[in-house]
Simulated scan of single mutants.
Amino acid sequence: MAELIIPGPAGRIEARYTEPAQEGAPIALVLHPHPRAGGTMQDPITIRLYQMFEKRGFGVLRFNTRGVGRSQGVYDQGVGELEDAAYVLDYMENLTENPRFVWCAGYSFGAWITLQLLMRRPEIDGFLAIAPPCNHYDLSFLAPCPASGLIISGENDKISGPKDVERSLTKVRVQKGEVIERDTIAGANHFFVDKHEELIAKCEAYVDRRLVEDEQKMRLEADTSKKRGAAAIANQSDDVEDDEDEGDDD
């Protein structure tokens, strides 16, 4: 893991970065909770998400949004923080070559930024939104949600309870073929006290399943493309032969 200072839109951005295990490996961006509530990239759940992707060979990056830690600037009500996330994702993509998949994960305020980032970055293939603050922010901007992902909340969460999540998603549409899955941690509050292991286990299971499914989908699309290419070449050959036959008749 390397310490990075990224020249961001509001000044320097403090970050931690682990390179992909191999060329073409997936990459993931991890976003921290609300700065006004003490959220930083050193938040325990943020670190656990980072480590989860790291263990799976992802190139992974977490960072402090503007005004947090050694990152310059001031808190900007989510607007500047979204700008930071988009900028850092650009930076991360420039560090890697042809990542196989692009993921974004966030906790609390970071989950809200994650969901907004999806709507601006079509290259994002999957997401994890941990306890998005649904009773503070509307999710109707997901219209339609362009990628599949998982939203997890705690059963006893007063900020992002299961009912809050369901209510927020009633107006949300999803693009064809994409699915927003929901899960709940029994007995957990917004901070998942004594529930970190269960939370990460659910995230791991979802990511592992999605990686297998997406690999299979990519192979199927590649096979279909090859078959279409072969069929097009065959059709072109038939057309040439027909033209030659017509020439012979003349």
Rank of each mutant, 00 (worst) to 15 (best):
I159C: 03
I159L: 13
I159R: 11
S160V: 02
S160T: 03
S160K: 01
G161P: 02
G161K: 00
P162N: 08
P162D: 05
P162A: 05
K163G: 01
D164F: 01
D164C: 00
V165K: 00
E166M: 08
E166T: 06
R167K: 13
S168H: 04
S168I: 03
S168Y: 01
S168R: 09
L169Y: 10
T170Q: 14
T170P: 03
T170R: 15
K171G: 04
V172T: 10
R173T: 09
R173K: 14
R173S: 09
V174P: 02
V174L: 02
V174I: 09
K176A: 10
K176S: 10
K176G: 00
G177T: 09
G177Q: 04
G177N: 04
G177K: 13
E178D: 03
E181Y: 15
R182P: 04
R182Q: 14
D183F: 05
T184Q: 09
T184S: 04
T184D: 00
I185F: 11
A186K: 11
A186H: 10
G187F: 07
G187A: 03
G187I: 10
A188Y: 04
N189W: 11
N189Y: 05
H190C: 02
F191R: 06
F191I: 06
F191Y: 11
F191W: 12
V193L: 11
V193G: 02
V193A: 06
D194A: 07
K195W: 04
H196W: 06
H196Q: 11
H196A: 08
E197M: 09
E197I: 06
E197G: 12
E198P: 03
E198Y: 06
E198A: 15
L199Q: 13
L199D: 08
I200R: 12
I200S: 12
I200V: 15
A201L: 10
A201T: 11
A201G: 07
A201Y: 04
K202E: 14
K202M: 14
C203E: 10
A205Y: 13
A205G: 10
A205Q: 13
Y206E: 07
Y206G: 05
V207N: 12
V207T: 11
V207C: 09
V207G: 10
V207P: 09
D208L: 15
D208F: 13
D208S: 13
R209E: 14
R210P: 12
V212A: 15
V212R: 15
E213M: 13
E213C: 09
D214N: 14
D214I: 07
D214F: 12
D214P: 02
E215M: 14
E215C: 06
E215Y: 12
Q216M: 06
Q216A: 05
K217Q: 10
K217W: 06
M218C: 00
M218S: 04
M218Q: 10
M218I: 08
M218H: 08
R219S: 13
R219T: 10
E221Y: 02
E221D: 11
A222D: 01
A222G: 03
A222Y: 00
D223K: 00
S225N: 04
S225C: 03
S225H: 07
S225T: 04
S225F: 00
S225W: 00
K226N: 03
K226L: 09
K226V: 01
K227S: 05
K227E: 07
R228F: 01
R228S: 00
R228Q: 01
G229T: 03
A231P: 02
A231E: 07
A232S: 08
